[in-house]
Design a protein around this nucleic acid. Structure first.
Length: 501
RNA sequence: GUCCCCGUCGUCCAGCGGUUAGGACACCGCCCUUUCACGGCGGUAACACGGGUUCGAAUCCCGUCGGGGACGCCA
């Protein structure tokens, strides 16, 4: 693969979107970018891609910073630390994108498109029904100047689309896979600027990568099929291309792209559940190859236990991780192996350090202080504290059917309702009032009494019919762990139901 | 459906034309042990299939099949 050195220093970036909890995939790609830059004495940039106002979550950006720092990754430039190529938040760069869209409009590589979202949706539906590839039909590619002026005078909203050539193809080099070619009739006229004036990923990404002097785009494999659009954009601006490295996608056990339905994907979850960042990083470094296994001689000379080949620090990854070793099959994110690794790290700690870890996370003063008031009014001896709060400190809480099933409900409707509760909590802000209101609204719409509603959730969360106040407990236990517990409950019941059949 | 990517034990990796196909997790057994875990020892288990190329193919080529991704005014 390419080993040529460029005159310019290596600059890479990760570009997460603040749309929810920081994702384990962001940490994975972040680690890879970090390693690549560090190994080459380059810079690692963090850019926040917050151009989708409909999915924007205000607390998310800070969580991304915190989670990446927790994992042990640091960046040289970013919204929080600044840098010479800022701003590093795309919502603060809209003027830049607007100027660049004008360039494309002027040189004829982009055009205005006046269809509404509804019209396009209708078109897509018809195409899918007709089993043809859903693609923009190019209706407004050749509007006359008069028509465009007329539409604009009417105040009709418009998007700006990339004018993909009708003939020919685009070939680009993927550093891991070699040349990849896309025929232009398989490349859609991508929207570059939405009617709200915000750019789409494709435009913002290319413009920013160029302006921020990014030399290597290291991102997930899911971007391969939009890379020709990006290449066309670089060409339209007359810019030179960065190198593209598409990393294999993390997978669920069934090989589909990793998703929160089938795996805990929130880094917050791992932090709050007591995973060590070193173990997480080590595990991510294991996925996709990259780290050479020790040779037989090394095992002998360094007296390595064979399993030590799987255990390595960030420093060792910086030293040894080799991008040309990466294997292209999407690795399954295997929680079982992560847990084993985490256990290895935990056991290696000195007793003092282990205790410190415990006190910093699962038995932190803050956590205990939040829990204490929930039991004080109902406690008789301090010794009962554990009895009343065990579920806060346990990982495996699975209620028996006799506990969770309401008297007047069937098993099926109960499981269905629990799934609704999960969806509701997932969408809810994590405070007493929001959760209470969301849960009650759900109960009303499905005609579940408050009692049935809350008792079911209580059973899932605590494994018991008695507990400290439910919603207060939820708040303290945290969103990430609550959702995980509910998903595990649902998963366990699904398995149980299948076995009964 | 169309395009693109991928294909070694259940899972994660080794293997780069000649290996009894190796290691780790998981699983099973034995040892250690008052229990459980840790630790130690051992075991089950894979080159998707079919054609080439070659003296020789897990390794190179082609096809088939299988898996995945993309096809949004999401990223």
């Amino acid at each position: 693969m390419s080993t040529e050195t460029t005159a310019s220093p290596v600059r890479v970036r990760i570009a997460p979107s603040p749309t929810g909890d920081p994702h384990v995939g962001t940490a994975y790609i972040g680690l890879l970018n970090f390693l690549y830059a560090t190994q080459r004495g380059g810079q690692f940039v963090l850019r926040i891609e917050d151009t989708d106002r409909t999915r924007f979550v205000p607390t998310s950006e800070q969580m991304i910073f915190d989670a990446l720092k927790w994992a042990g990754l640091t960046w040289d430039e970013g919204p929080d630390v600044g840098g010479p190529y800022g701003p590093y938040r795309q919502s603060e760069r809209t003027e830049i994108y607007r100027e660049h869209v004008e360039i494309l409009l002027a040189n004829g590589t982009a055009y205005r498109s006046f269809e509404t979202a509804e019209e396009l949706e209708e078109m897509r539906k018809q195409q899918i029904a007709a089993k043809t590839p859903p693609r923009y039909n190019g209706a407004h590619r050749h509007l006359t100047q008069d028509q465009i002026v007329a539409y604009r005078l009417q105040g009709r909203p418009y998007t700006v689309r990339l004018k993909v050539p009708t003939e020919g193809s685009t070939t680009f080099r993927d550093e891991l896979r070699g040349d990849i070619t896309f025929d232009h009739n398989n490349v859609d006229d991508q929207v570059l600027m939405k009617s709200d004036g915000f750019p789409t990923y494709h435009l913002a990404n290319v413009v920013d990568d160029h302006l921020m002097r990014i030399t290597d785009v290291i991102r997930a494999e899911e971007w391969i099929s939009s890379t020709p659009k990006h290449v066309l954009l670089y060409n339209a601006f007359g810019w030179s291309l960065p190198r593209f490295w598409h990393m294999p996608l993390l997978r669920n056990a069934d090989k589909s792209k990793i998703s929160k339905r089938k795996n805990p994907v929130s880094l917050i979850f791992y932090r709050e559940s007591g995973y060590l960042p070193e173990a997480m990083l080590n595990f991510l470094g294991l996925l996709g190859g990259g780290m050479a296994q020790p040779t037989e001689e090394e095992i002998v000379s360094k007296q390595l236990n064979t399993k030590e080949g799987d255990i390595f620090s960030l420093a060792e990854m910086i030293e040894k991780f080799d991008f040309n070793r990466i294997s292209l099959g999407g690795p399954v994110f295997d929680l079982v192996k992560l847990k084993w690794l985490n256990g290895e790290y935990l056991r290696k700690l000195s007793p003092e350090a282990f205790f410190t870890q415990l006190r910093a996370t699962i038995f932190s003063d803050a956590y205990l202080q939040a829990i204490a008031p929930l039991v004080q009014t109902r406690i008789e001896t301090l010794g009962q504290f554990g009895d009343m709060t065990g579920f806060f400190f346990s990982d495996n809480v699975l209620p028996a059917e006799s506990i969770f099933l309401p008297k007047k409900r069937t098993y099926e409707e109960t499981i269905a309702f629990a799934a609704e509760q999960l969806a509701t909590l997932e969408a809810s802000a994590w405070d007493l009032e929001s959760i209470t209101n969301a849960l009650k609204a759900l109960g009303e719409s499905k005609e579940w009494s408050v009692k049935e509603n809350f008792m079911l959730l209580r059973a899932i969360l605590t494994g018991s019919t008695t507990s400290p106040p439910l919603v207060e407990s939820l708040v303290v236990f945290g969103k990430a762990r609550t959702l995980d517990r509910m998903r595990r409950f649902l998963e366990a019941e699904k398995k149980r139901a299948n076995q009964r059949k």
